[in-house]
Design a protein around this nucleic acid. Structure first.
Lengths: 177, 177
DNA sequence: TTGTTTGTTTAGTTCGAACTAAACACTCAG
DNA sequence: CTGAGTGTTTAGTTCGAACTAAACAAACAA
C-alpha cells in the first residue's frame, strides 16, 4: 500500500471521527467505524487497536455501542474465538437505528418531564393566588408538549414507513445515484 | 407566587436544560431558554443571572447563541440601555434555524473532507501498486459521499419548502391541535 | 470630564465524558 | 488442571467544553 492511499484512509477516518464527534458521539467511535468501513475483510478488535491506536477497552465499549445501533455487525467465524466486525453500508438504515435509539431513551423522558410540570401546575390550580401566572406557564408548557408530541409522531411515522416498505423511501432519496 | 408554581417552573426549566444538553448544547443554554420561555414579559440579562444562578458571562454568551439561532429575540426598548429578550414560540421555526446553522458550518466540512479523501486517492491512481485496495476505498468513500449529498439536498429541500409556503407544512403537522 | 450602567471578552477553573492500564472473566487446548 | 487467547469491567487519568470572576468596552448622564 503506498503512502498516499494510507494518507487518504487516515484523512477519511479523521473526517468521520469529526462528524460523529460533532453529532455528540465519541471521536473514537467514528474512527472505529471509519476503519471498519474501509476494510474489505471482517476486522478484529485487536486489528482496530493497532490501526487506530486507542486502547482495547475503548475499542471494546465503542464497538459494542456501534453494534447496538446497527452501525457495524458482528460476524462469528466458526472455530475462531475472535469477534469479527463488518460495517453496515446502508446509511439510511443507520440513521433509522440512531433515531430509534434516541427516540426510546431520552426523548420519552423529555416529554414526560414537561407533562410532569404541567401536572404540578394543575394539581394546585385551586389554592393558588397567582392564577394568572400559573395559567400562562401552563399555556406555554402545553405549547412545548404539543411540539414534542408532533415531533414524536413524525419520527414514529417515518420509522413505520421505513419498516413497511423499506425500499421505497430510500429509492426516492437515492434516485440520483 | 406559590411554592408549587415555582416548583413547576423549576422542574420545567430543568427538563428543558436536560433536553438541550442531550442534543449537544450547553445545559445553561436550555435553562436560559426555559426561563425566557416562561416569562410573559421581556427579560433582561441580569434577571436571568439571578433567576438561573449562573454568571453574567455565561448568560451573555449563551443568549447570544440562542439569538443567533433564532430561539430568542432581542427586544430593544427605547430610552433603556438594557437588552430585553423574548422567546420564539414557534418550535418548527427553531428547528429550521438549528438545521440551517448545522448545515452551514460543520456539515459542509464533513462533505468536503470526504471529497478530499477521494481526490487524494484519485490523484495517485496511476502510480499505485495496490490498485485493488485504492479502488475499494474509493468505492466506499463515494458511498458515504452520496449519502451526504442526499441528506444535504433533503434538508435543503425541507428548508426551501418551509421558506416558500411556510405555513402549509406546519399546519399539517399541527393538525391535531 | 468622571461615574454609572450595561454587555463582552479573557484568563483561569471546574467538571464530566471518554480514555488508558490493568485486573478480571470466560473459553478452549493440551 | 494450567496456560494462552480473547473480550469486558473498573479505578484512575486526561482533556476539552463550559463555566466563573474580573477586567474591559461602550454608551450615556450629570
Amino acid at each position: 500500500m503506498t503512502g498516499t492511499v494510507t494518507e487518504a484512509k487516515e484523512n477519511f477516518i479523521q473526517g468521520v471521527s469529526r462528524i460523529t464527534h460533532f453529532w455528540g458521539f465519541p471521536k473514537a467511535m467514528g474512527a472505529i467505524f471509519g476503519a471498519v468501513y474501509l476494510s474489505s475483510e471482517p476486522v478484529t478488535l485487536d486489528e482496530l487497536v493497532t490501526q487506530i491506536g486507542v486502547s482495547k477497552g475503548a475499542v471494546s465499549t465503542n464497538i459494542r455501542n456501534l453494534e447496538r445501533l446497527g452501525i457495524v455487525h458482528k460476524k462469528i467465524i466458526l472455530g475462531d474465538r475472535k469477534d469479527y466486525y463488518i460495517a453496515e453500508t446502508d446509511f439510511w438504515k443507520i440513521v433509522k437505528g440512531i433515531l430509534r435509539e434516541r427516540e426510546k431513551h431520552e426523548f420519552d423522558h423529555a416529554i414526560m418531564s414537561v407533562g410532569e410540570s404541567i401536572k404540578m401546575l394543575e394539581e394546585d390550580m385551586d389554592n393558588i393566588e397567582d392564577l394568572k401566572t400559573a395559567a400562562f406557564y401552563r399555556e406555554r408548557m402545553i405549547g412545548l408538549q404539543k411540539f414534542f408530541d408532533n415531533l414524536d409522531s413524525l419520527v414514529a411515522t417515518l420509522l413505520a414507513i421505513d419498516d413497511i416498505k423499506s425500499n421505497v423511501f430510500k429509492n426516492i432519496l437515492l434516485k440520483k445515484s
